[in-house]
Design a protein around this nucleic acid. Sequence first.
DNA 1: CCACATTTGTAGCGAACACTACAGATATCT
DNA 2: AGATATCTGTAGTGTTCGCTACAAATGTGG
Lengths: 199, 199
Amino acid sequence: MGMGRPRAFDADAALDRAMDVFWRHGYEGATIAQLTEAMSINPPSLYAAFGSKEGLLKAALDRYTEKRDAWMDRVLNAATAHEVAERFLMEHADAQTDPANPPGCLLVQGGLACGTGSANVPFELAARRTRTEDQLRERFVRAKAEHDLGESVDPATLARYLSAVTSGMCVMASSGANRETLREIAAVSLKAFEEQTKG
Amino acid sequence: MGMGRPRAFDADAALDRAMDVFWRHGYEGATIAQLTEAMSINPPSLYAAFGSKEGLLKAALDRYTEKRDAWMDRVLNAATAHEVAERFLMEHADAQTDPANPPGCLLVQGGLACGTGSANVPFELAARRTRTEDQLRERFVRAKAEHDLGESVDPATLARYLSAVTSGMCVMASSGANRETLREIAAVSLKAFEEQTKG
DNA sequence: CCACATTTGTAGCGAACACTACAGATATCT
DNA sequence: AGATATCTGTAGTGTTCGCTACAAATGTGG
């Protein structure tokens, strides 16, 4: 028996286009019409490949997380906790103002508060944000074991702080903050990080 | 000539209810049906009083800003810049986890990225956030004039930093961060503030 | 070449959306 | 009291939403 007509579009390329639409308009603000146009496919192709609008979001988030993990690996491989924090903050400032993408971060702009029909979208986004925070925390736990960070330092607090600052930078970026402004915020935050690791 | 049938509902009380819905579901996630039910009125009353869904949001934001200004006055009246920062951060942690309101802040949860039909909603929210930042900056300019802050300190940077942190706390609050967690973040941020004002 | 499995484009589905026409109700002003 | 002006509730309006039925198209395996 046959294997059916092959798909005529590249799923990953289409997800990149969908990512951009969700990023720019949020989950609820993005319409199927906009998504299909950006992806250069028709609705039946979208639904055959991804099941639903929410399924498409999850697939886009998977792809987003994939890229983000590769980036996080490079950040976490820095020699010291301080350098991890510095890279994390500074490269966030750059990424959130990269003209190749909409401002901010998909995991924040995607939607913090949604309607009753999309109630689990914010959860989905939050789970992916938590993942970054977990990766940071584990890196700081390791730094503690390596005596790169002192005994009195709480890795969870450090990770949460960095996560909060970068989330805040997303909000600023969405209202037009430029790269220099975000770097300034990152620089101040880095001093807080240093101060926190001294105590 | 007569002056017409008087309004049978309290506009401010209705706005408080609407505020809660926008806060919990975001602008686009909030439906007219949910809003009218929460406000205990029918659609024609809503449209007669506020013109449109976006008009209702603006009216709710005006009321929100009113309350926020009263709160900011108390914060800004603190004796020193340091105390201003401390109050601002800590009371934000409390306010964003106040069980009387949805988590976070209406100016962030309301919507960072919206659909093409609601494109100016994010601008409207951003403008109100900027107002808070401006108030902080002006307070720090004053602190500088009073020699409470050193000559080398940049009031704009300080204000932006505090604004970014509290925005980040909104994101954390929306994904379930509790009061203690936010206070922890506020405490770390306050150390950054101190460090920044020393340099 | 034929049977089969899957995708594609067209066209349109029911539901929910923001919003409103209309008539009755309720106030004020003369 | 009567005329007027505005609000209220019912019951919708047209539009857009996410999603899909269907038939033609296009590949594989026998």
